[in-house]
Amino acid sequence: MADWQPSALQLERQAYRRSRTRRSALIAFVSTVVVFAAVAIAVVNSPGWSRTRDSFFDLRTGWHDMPALLRALWTNVQIMLICEVIVLVLATLIAVARTLQGPVFFPLRLLAAAYTDIFRGMPLLIVLFLVGYGLPSLRISALPSSPFILCIIALSLTYTAYVAEVLRAGIQSVHPSQRAAARSLGLTHLQTVRHVVFPQAVRRVLPALLNDFVSLQKDTSLVSIVGVLEVVLRAQNFNSQDYKFVHYVFAGLIFVALTVPLTRLTDWIAARQGWNGTGGGVV
């Protein structure tokens, strides 16, 4: 291959492609500059810009209160990590329960289906109210009363339903011939699910799973409504002192910074879909 020389036709093609590339780069650059400039000019010249700037973009105040926000972030991270573990375990159990065959398991399947239907449909905010205020109002001493634990219960209930459905979709996407092969070797139903179907299912739905976890990370901000002191409630406290919204802007940026690594990871895994075990090709 070393002595390969491009033909005249090939040289002409390459020159043409280079000129097209230059042209598209130029167009992209100019249009980006124009759009951003237009937006900036429109915003800065709006009638309320000076008040908006003082409230939302008072970077000095925002930066000053940033450490307090970051300390509050630790609560979000704790909730997120604990929920992710609980959700993974419960969702796996529910997804597998829904694959069990035979009339004996009908109640289990029904229960699992009813659970996912209810908690996938119910807004998280309402689940948080019901669990956060409803459970304590029963005044049963055995039930947890700490808002921190109650909000973990609420988030886990909702996200287990989502993740269980994602896993179930993955399980159903594994071709029945894989099951037939495993069963023909003498594996039981549960062995087949555990060693043959589930590993393939998880590989296929990993991007969707990570997507749900990104979403869970963001939704830890909602627990402020049951009085757990986390980033958003912290920002709200600052806001009620100085009436500035810059704290929310900073809180928002913190969440973006927190989720970006996970979204990048999701994209990277999705891009690698051709790896061993997905069964599909790299088309």
């Binding site: 011939s177 037939a180 092969a181 023909s184 043959v196 590993p199 393939q200 061993n276 069964g279």
Partner: peptide, 13 residues
């Protein structure tokens, strides 16, 4: 009882 399938059905993972 061993079984061999038309489409092999090896476990891809």
């Amino acid at each position: 009882i061993g079984m061999v399938f038309q489409h092999f059905n090896l476990f891809p993972h």
